[in-house]
Design a protein around this nucleic acid. Structure first.
Lengths: 340, 340
DNA sequence: TTGAAAGCGCTAACAC
DNA sequence: GTGTTAGCGCTTTCAA
């Protein structure tokens, strides 16, 4: 069992405050006393109790992070970036995986609030959640990532410009001579779906090409819907021809590619493919996939810095205005797209 | 700001204990009283303060997890498995990424202990750490995963049988007629390196083939050492010929494959390759890689269950004996190995 | 069925 | 420089 300040004080015949002063490196302590206490603390391996300190100081030095799936490399990298910043300030990360489930997300929000986290990073799967609004209103520092909620109050967020991302992807295909371009996106009620679809439309319109609604399919970010959406597109190809497809999420990209292969077509000869967030860790994918990417570690770092800023502003009556940081995504040109 | 029991008690003209009883669903409360209090709690969105409760009860309902790299799918899956179990019991996970750094691991151990975590899951990169021994001795429930430490006391662990894994891999190659088999492993001071190397040796010896030390290379789990080890093997191939290589870690497998390709050789025609923990999420790798695998989610679940068991045993003077759970890994045969 | 009070381990204002 | 004390929000024993 660990010793407490009280124990040490009693055993050393000093007062609790003296011990506390030494532990916290305050300067108003006699050198002799400090040495004696220090020696004792080392010898008996005293470790301060952060829980008691948290209760007293009303701050836990913890940051909650809720993400839909910890196995996605995207989120792993973002967390790594956040950790790099906040661990310098001795903040710890309480991580929760919502399994893409709105209800679990809601319960986790509750649980994290009970734990009195100092700040929250949320990749929400519940764009219309009310719980998170309560938390923001109660003064908790919240930063959204990846996907934006529908909220009536201003909030902080760090993410890529999804509309711009789609424009870049489509412009690449247009530049290669493609004009009939199909599109598969995730749920359009989430900004990661809606904004990416919007960018697709805008890019075509700006090029003077009218959008063919029959070439648009909506999935749910998972691989199997990428597969089924692609199959539908292929089946209708007689009436609704296309030479390229833009798949706006990693796992759906994989599904679409499999569908193309299983229908005996090849990439990019028969269909050019632009993916999203595709990570080819081994560099062994064949064909290698042209894809939109984001700098996840950088996003994580910006989130970490924003959090630290918000937490340092806490004493002030009014913090600086909320900000939405939009990062530019980038296009990785590989061999899954070709000039037509 | 959140209300406290005291606030509620005052505003309702009751005692703190009564409110506490209602909050905690104790039964010795008058129905009328309960209704009044409940209504008030709901209306004012009272949320209990877990920090105060933790201090009082000397248990935080948190589990610390330290892993070397959160971006490895292996660890992501294990965490997911742990979370699935412990979240049912309202435990939260405090996650730390040690970046494969012994010193960061040590500091995190300290920090987690200050936070008074109830239990710890550790994929250590510091087989001879003394800090963790202190923690075990102080009564903290610790479960090791992936890699085992050198400790003089019994401890809990869940991991695969690394020696058996290597035997399975080598036996597969032997069965295909290979007799000259090279081997690349991670640091042999860690069990994930040492035991895998041991299995390699044993499998060959059991087959009556003497081990050629020149065909063994030791890397550090990272991709670049996989590459450089493979290059050395290829360079010496004139004097030390081999027809197959066993690479006992995922990222090193990728590195080795790249080295083989950049030397103008092909898999499996020139060299057969068996990897370890290779995850081909897209199913697009070419060649597809024959690899040893482990059931990560299952490991995570067993860890979670073991933790819950240890925590429930805490009141007892003497818990049940420590256990090392060895899971069987399995071989995934793909197209990177062929009959000779 | 309800209330009063002690105490978990710590910080900090105040007194000496 | 050092000690005393109140109190952070909660649980729980004991008394009423």
């Amino acid at each position: 069992m660990n010793k407490t300040l009280k124990d040490v004080a009693r055993e050393l015949n000093m007062s609790i405050s003296t011990i506390s002063r030494v532990v916290n490196n305050k300067d108003n302590v006699n050198e002799k006393t400090r040495d004696i206490v220090m020696a004792y603390l080392e010898k008996h391996k005293y470790t301060p109790n952060r829980v008691a300190k948290s209760l007293k100081e009303n701050t836990t030095k913890t940051i909650g992070i809720i993400i839909p799936d910890i196995c996605e490399v995207l989120f792993g990298q973002i967390i790594k970036g956040i950790d790099q910043i906040v661990s310098q300030y001795d903040y710890s990360i309480i991580l929760v995986d919502s399994h893409e489930d709105k209800h679990k997300e809601e319960r986790c929000l509750e649980l994290l609030y009970e734990q009195r986290i100092d700040a929250l990073v949320l990749a929400t799967v519940n764009s219309n959640g009310s719980k998170v609004l309560e938390l923001i209103n109660s003064g908790l520092a919240v930063v959204f990532i990846d996907n934006l909620p529908n909220l009536s109050v201003p909030y902080d967020a760090v993410l890529i410009d999804n509309t711009a991302a789609s424009k870049m992807a489509i412009n690449h295909l247009l530049g290669q001579g493609h004009t009939q371009i199909a599109c598969i996106v995730g749920s359009t009620s989430e900004t990661t779906g809606g904004d990416r679809l919007l960018g697709y439309r805008l890019a075509l319109e700006e090029a003077g090409i009218s959008v063919n609604e029959n070439l648009i399919r909506v999935g749910n970010y998972k691989e199997d819907t990428g597969y089924s959406c692609m199959e539908e597109l292929i089946r209708n190809r007689g009436g609704q021809p296309f030479t390229a497809v833009y798949v706006a999420a990693e796992m759906m990209t994989f599904g679409a590619i499999k569908a193309i292969g299983s229908h005996g077509m090849s990439i990019p000869e028969d269909i050019s493919v632009v993916g999203f967030d595709v990570h080819d860790r081994a560099g062994l994918m064949l064909p290698s996939i042209t894809t939109m990417r984001q700098d996840e570690q950088q996003i994580g770092k910006l989130v970490g810095e924003l959090l630290m800023k918000r937490l340092s502003e806490r004493e002030q009556a009014q913090g600086s205005p909320k900000q939405k940081i939009l990062m530019m995504p980038f296009l990785e040109v590989k061999s899954s797209t070709k000039q037509i």
